[in-house]
């Protein structure tokens, strides 16, 4: 801008007059530098995360007996680091969570986007957002003291109070608002003209939603599920409180039994004793599991981001 003006100085004016007070200019430079530093902090944080994970993970990977990493149960204090116990535990909790939250969240998203009147939206959306703000320890306690005895044990009395299923339902409560809001956004970005065309051909509402809006928004819906998956697999406190087996666990594939996930295993190593002691690599195993979790969620988030972008580009 400044160059444009100074190329044609008025009578008696030199470009120096238009340049402005040097103190203001200096202030501008300083502020710009500070703001850039704030933005660059995020890069430093990423660097620190990777640095924190890599160092101890490397110690673990280079020293551990790999027969124990694919062996029999996760008992870090006894030197058994069977990672598949944790992977399968995380997968079970996540699948239960998605099986409950997927249809319900999607249904809520469809209703909000396609059926709800402006007035209903205005009341219900904030309420769902409030549900999204409930801390996960609270949901964990709720899963342990309400969902498990009042719902799960009512269907099958012999079920223990702490189960992966109870934790999974707890996780579902946490991710329903997420699924609902991302899928609603995806459907609302489908242009109105597509719906009008469908109605013009005589289609009913349910046909229009099912055969026109949902297919058009499919990228966004996929993104919603991936983000939900990533959030569910990283959820810690619900599983730590409601799934049991904090010390260690044998390989367990039944959702109606207690189990251990990657996140809960990390939390229990950290909370078990004041300073992590025991078997030489117990402490490092925490970082090893953390590194695996980090890579999984990062990959999921990158893929989800692709899908979200595809929706934006198309419409």
């Amino acid at each position: 801008m400044a160059q444009l003006i100074t190329s044609q100085p008025g009578p008696g004016l030199t470009s120096a007059d238009l340049r402005g007070d040097p103190r203001r200019m200096r202030k501008e430079t300083v502020v710009r530098g500070l703001l850039f530093a704030a933005a660059a902090t995020s890069i430093i944080i990423s660097g620190l995360i990777v640095y924190s994970l890599v160092r101890e993970t490397w110690t673990f990977v280079s020293q551990v007996d790999w027969a124990l990493v694919w062996g029999d149960g996760w008992f870090p204090r006894r030197g058994q680091y069977d990672i598949k116990t944790l992977l399968v535990g995380s997968l079970i909790v996540t699948v239960v969570g998605l099986a409950v939250a997927g249809p319900i969240g999607l249904g809520a998203g469809i209703y909000l986007s396609e059926y709800a009147s402006a007035r209903v939206r205005k009341v219900i959306k904030p309420t769902i957002e409030v549900l999204a703000g409930v801390p996960s320890v609270v949901v964990g306690f709720f899963a342990l003291t309400f969902i498990s005895p009042e719902i799960i044990q009512r269907f099958r009395e012999a079920t223990p109070q702490q189960t992966m299923a109870a934790a999974g339902i707890g996780v579902a409560i946490l991710i329903i608002p997420l699924v609902a809001s991302i899928s609603e956004d995806a459907m609302r970005s489908v242009p109105r003209s597509l719906r009008e065309a469908s109605y013009g051909l005589g289609a009913r509402k349910v046909t229009t939603v099912g055969k026109v809006v949902l297919p058009a928004a499919v990228s966004g819906l996929v993104a919603a599920f991936i983000v939900a998956f990533s959030r569910a697999i990283g959820e810690t406190m619900v599983v730590f409180i409601a799934a049991g087996k904090s010390g260690g666990s044998l390989f367990e594939t039944n959702p109606l039994e207690p189990g251990l996930t990657m996140t809960a295993a990390m939390a229990s190593i950290a909370s078990g004793t004041d300073s992590v002691v025991g078997e030489a690599l117990t402490f490092q195993s925490l970082f090893f599991v953390g590194a695996i979790l980090f890579v999984i969620t990062l990959a999921l988030n990158i893929v989800a981001d692709r899908f979200v972008r595809r929706v934006r580009e198309r419409y």
Binding site: I45, S46, L48, I49, S230, E235, G290, L293, A304
Partner: peptide, 18 residues
């Protein structure tokens, strides 16, 4: 945007190490 999706417990590892 990627940092926003990192599980909270991984930030715990960062906090512990750093």
């Amino acid at each position: 945007r990627n940092l926003a999706g990192v599980p909270s417990i991984v930030y715990g590892i960062l906090g512990f190490a750093v």
